[in-house]
């Protein structure tokens, strides 16, 4: 409720916005002068070998962004891949992995967790199909939704190869990961990265050469999900098994 009113007021006057920010005890969203769109280009690195499937990221995301229950901006999948044939893995994601995973054992399989989130694609199929410009790629490399402008036609949900979008059942508009834009624009990391106990997820600013994460990209074999989709995904996976889809 707070968010809706907030949006409304924001549309009315900047003064109202400033007041609300003050009342909520938040320093006003970094003004354009401080946060320069042109200086950043965001992505993420996910290290499969470090993920322990604790579900912290899923819970934190839900708390940070008030994600409606039953829908996920990020989720974790548990893969059980038979040694042969590899193309028939058993995959589970009970409640998106929010409460962790049961230790189901499948014979002769390798097992691992795969955290998923919006890939903030450079050539987003979802942005391409939006009929009105309610979802868009920002100059700093994010794919965002203007919830006051979305028609709720759901074409973008169909176009996303990764299943990252859902319809907010209360607002009847599309919703998805913002890569915690409200946090990263203030110099914080995302809620999922903040709470990941093993550092399996790392926010990366691809335009900032001083970001230590660049070293990881330079020295490791990384992959993106469904590379044949040619979406220019900016979520890079380390130690990703080919069976993951």
């Amino acid at each position: 409720m707070e968010v809706t009113r907030r949006h409304l007021l924001l549309l009315l006057t900047p003064a109202a916005a400033a007041f609300l920010d003050h009342r909520n005890g938040v320093s006003a969203a970094a003004p354009e002068s401080k946060y320069k769109l042109a200086d950043h280009y965001w992505g993420m690195i996910v290290d499969i070998a470090k993920c322990i499937g604790c579900g912290n990221c899923v819970r934190a995301c839900s708390q940070e962004n008030a994600v409606p229950s039953g829908y996920f901006r990020t989720w974790v999948e548990r893969y059980s891949v038979p040694d042969y044939p590899e193309e028939h893995p058993i995959v589970e994601s009970p409640n998106g992995g929010m409460e962790g995973f049961p230790n189901t054992e499948h014979k002769n399989t390798k097992n691992f967790f795969v955290p998923k989130l919006c890939n903030h694609c450079e050539h987003s199929p979802c942005v391409q199909v939006c009929p009105v410009g309610a979802t868009f790629e920002t100059p700093d490399g994010l794919v965002l939704v203007d919830k006051t402008y979305c028609l709720g036609c759901r074409y973008c949900v169909q176009a996303c190869p990764y299943g990252c979008r859902y319809i907010d059942p209360h607002k009847e508009v599309v919703d998805k990961c913002t890569l915690c834009y409200h946090r990263i624009s203030q110099g914080l990391t995302t809620a999922c990265c903040e709470t990941c106990p093993t550092g399996a997820r790392l926010l990366v600013d691809l335009k900032n050469p001083k970001d230590p994460v660049h070293e990881i990209l330079r020295t490791n074999a990384v992959q993106v999900l469904k590379p044949h989709m040619a979406t220019g995904s900016k979520v890079y996976y380390k130690s990703l098994d080919q069976s993951v889809r």
Partner: peptide, 28 residues
């Protein structure tokens, strides 16, 4: 909308609106 097309085919002021969300995790 006034700011439509500011950065691309979308309402430019949407960026600030999304950034204005209050944070829940303060950070270490």
């Amino acid at each position: 909308p006034a700011t439509f097309g500011q950065y691309g085919h979308f309402r430019g002021s949407a960026l600030e609106e999304i950034r204005a969300r209050p944070i829940a995790f303060a950070g270490r």
